[in-house]
Nucleic acid binder design. Structure first.
Lengths: 262, 262
DNA sequence: CGGGCCCTTGATTCACGTCAATCTCTGTGG
DNA sequence: CCACAGAGATTGACGTGAATCAAGGGCCCG
């Protein structure tokens, strides 16, 4: 089951029952308002009529695991909000070296461009649903909905700060610190999104991405990632039910290992 | 001579002749319009009356080389535009490891915060002049001047894309690629800011920052930085008049070395 | 049962970091 | 004018930790 889909929702209800729903405007109010990503997304500050009007330009779309949403240097036509599932953003060098710049999930936005071209590859890690806006339409909306503009600003600011954190990690942290940080971020996101108590010291969650993805996110090789997981396992800090299902046994100690500053 | 001050301008004229110039409103039109940072800055889309009104909330301030503008976790009260000189933004770990997240110069903004606290240290590399806004005032201005909001959006977007580039560099590039990239960025900025021909293959410019700063920006040690400079020098790609004054002898070849993708 | 993919583990290498000495430039004081 | 000190940069010798290379294991799916 994909991250971010709460148990009440079927995929069908998220898609509004149709792939292209321009004809669904009259039901938009309840449609967008009931979207599982709404409260984290671009549109989180809108409701009622305004939300319906804003949402009228959007379309939900399903992307299968492994599929490409867009590629770097493609002509940028759309802007996206992730509804469910997880998308990886990455850049590549000619020789195949890759850096993942972020994993985007429920409520996160996607689709930045310069000079009309996307600046990263965007691929679905697992089955993904996105809410798609035409770029032209979004820019028009931004003029009319200042609440969206404000929200976008907030989200961009948060993005910059995240990226700066990640730079510190990439430039100056050891493999153990990197993995600990990574797991900590995932754990905290999981706690937040699932409304668990803030002060728990154990969490269990699923990692949708492969070891290759983790390596390319943290600036390591798969071997080092794997060895570091093993180290953490042997020290009793984590358990691996499968390679993608982690249990953090001591969040506090993980924070120490992560050197995370927060 | 500080980067970004064109030859006609004295520091005095940039400061408007006074440190706190609330009383200078009537002369604001010409004051802001003649600011050397205007065309790159937050206010670049404003002119005439609007520019004067927007600028009324701002104050130019001089910061000496080496001085701190603000520190991480300080209460965020102001937002800044760099008028001249150069500021480094950095984060630190407890044990002193440091990552510089960016060098900010003419027209760039500064002062992002979360939960009311600055997210980085900001220090003057050389003598710096900034244009300072109270955060409250700026937020109010953003409501009234949509052109500023649009411009801020553009600048934030460019910032995100820059940071993603830097992540690819930190995570996946070799020391030579890192230094070549760094020099290339500097060279291109120099060419742009000084209006040189686009197709030159040689440039000469000043690096205001120390080897330590370069190392902390690129995720290297000073020794590796130094050795890499020497390598580039021996291969005839660059010349060093002093350790801070570089001449790029073959920009095209430097682009090859940088693996820069652009 | 067999093939393929992903992950883990082990052995080896080498690039970058570390440690240490020397050099250069600048400013200061005799 | 020179001697000296101190900071920053360079260079060299050496060690190490992560990358590389190579093998083996687990799991899914036909």
């Amino acid at each position: 089951m994909a991250i971010g889909i709460t148990s009440e929702e079927t995929l069908d209800s998220q898609l509004g029952g149709c792939r292209f729903n321009q004809d669904a405007n009259k039901s938009k109010v309840s449609y967008c308002a009931s979207c599982s990503a709404h409260k984290y997304a671009l549109c989180s500050k809108l409701d009622g009529e305004a939300l319906a009007a804003f949402g009228a330009n959007s379309t939900h779309r399903k992307i299968d695991a492994g599929q490409t949403l867009y590629s770097e240097y493609d002509e940028a036509t759309s802007f996206y909000t992730v509804v469910s599932g997880e998308v990886r953003l990455s850049r590549m060098l000619d020789d195949g070296r890759r850096q993942i710049t972020g994993f985007k999930s429920q409520g996160d936005f996607l689709g930045l461009s310069t000079k009309g071209l996307y600046t990263a590859d965007a691929e679905a890690i697992d089955d993904v649903v996105v809410c798609q806006f035409s770029l032209a339409g979004l820019n028009k909306s931004l003029e009319n909905f200042s609440a969206v503009q404000v929200r976008l600003m907030e989200m961009m600011q948060a993005e910059v700060i995240d990226l700066q954190d990640q730079m510190l990690l990439l430039g100056r942290k050891t493999p153990i610190e990197k993995i600990a940080n990574f797991l900590l971020d995932r754990a905290e996101r999981h706690i937040e999104r699932n409304g668990l108590a803030e002060d728990v010291n154990e969490v269990e969650f699923h990692l949708p991405m492969s070891r290759v993805d983790i390596a390319d996110f943290l600036g390591l090789t798969i071997e080092t990632v794997s060895r570091t997981f093993t180290k953490l396992k042997k020290s009793g800090l984590i358990e691996l039910k499968t390679s993608q299902d982690v249990k953090i046994c001591d969040l506090d100690e993980l924070r120490v290992q992560a050197n995370s500053d927060e």
